[in-house]
């Protein structure tokens, strides 16, 4: 079996070992999946994502992205994914376009490809009018959408998003979901965390549920129903799992 994302025995503690944010986590995602990462506040989703993206180094464990070891070859591995962080408060003094061009420069995307990729996305998210304004003047949702566009300038194989729907209007949220589906349909992999269970239920091909740093479930929605032997909504099953 080919895996696009592979986390092996990942652990991470904060504050000199006091808070075990991620506890011996193992996880694999094959290509073409939309992987939904669920869990209560403080469960360790963001920490896991930061480890996957090379922002934090794990205390123990390995990360492999498209077969490249993130810890051994960070630059090569980082080229494989695009990342939307959970905070959108960055680079307030750059204009939207300056930011996009900076990211594209980093990934060495040629001018023509930049244009082909960025223009339609700006239109889709109605950001064309504001693209030469400072990011600091954007609304929360606008910043979020800009980061989504930036994460796609190099057409990565893996798309990692940390709570991307927060603050998006219904239209943008719909468009983002559509983008994710198209993306996976092209054989690429989407990995995102969310608290919106309706979205996860409809969109995701695989779910992972994390609680107190430990992965307590991975599989499809069907798997979850079989495991629980109940035909309930994701919301009910999720709450049962997390409360137990």
């Amino acid at each position: 079996m080919v895996y696009i994302i592979r986390l092996k025995n990942i652990s991470k503690a904060y504050g000199g070992g006091k808070v075990r944010a991620v506890d011996n986590l193992n996880l694999t995602v094959p290509p073409g999946e939309i992987f939904g990462f669920l869990g209560p506040n403080g469960a360790g989703k963001t920490t896991t994502i930061k480890i996957m993206t090379g922002i934090l180094s794990p205390d123990t464990g390995e990360v492999e992205l498209c077969g490249v070891d993130l810890l051994k070859e960070p630059l090569r591995a980082k080229r494989k994914f695009g990342y939307v962080p959970d905070t959108s408060e960055i680079f307030p003094r750059l204009s939207g376009l300056e930011f996009l061009n900076f990211v594209a420069d980093v990934y060495e995307v040629p001018a023509k490809l930049r244009e082909e990729r960025i223009r339609p996305l700006l239109k889709l998210f109605s950001l064309e009018g504001a693209i030469n304004d400072r990011i600091g003047s954007y609304s929360h949702g606008m910043k979020q959408k800009l980061l989504v566009i930036a994460s796609l300038v190099h057409d990565p194989d893996i798309w990692i998003l940390d709570e991307p729907m927060t603050g998006l209007d219904p239209e943008s949220s719909f468009n983002l979901k559509k983008l994710m589906q198209d993306y996976a349909a092209r054989g690429k992999t989407v990995f995102f965390s969310t608290h919106i269970l309706e979205v996860a239920e409809k969109l995701c091909t695989t779910l992972g549920i994390i609680k107190k740093g430990k992965l307590i479930f991975t599989g499809t929605m069907e798997d979850l129903k079989t495991q629980k032997q109940e035909d309930k909504s994701l919301e009910e099953l999720f709450l049962e799992l997390v409360r137990s």
Binding site: P92, L97, E115, R119, N132, D133, R134, G136, S137
Partner: peptide, 12 residues
């Protein structure tokens, strides 16, 4: 944040 136009078209 101070809505300021940095001049210029969509240039890449």
């Amino acid at each position: 944040g101070g809505r300021r136009r940095v001049k210029g078209e969509l240039t890449f």
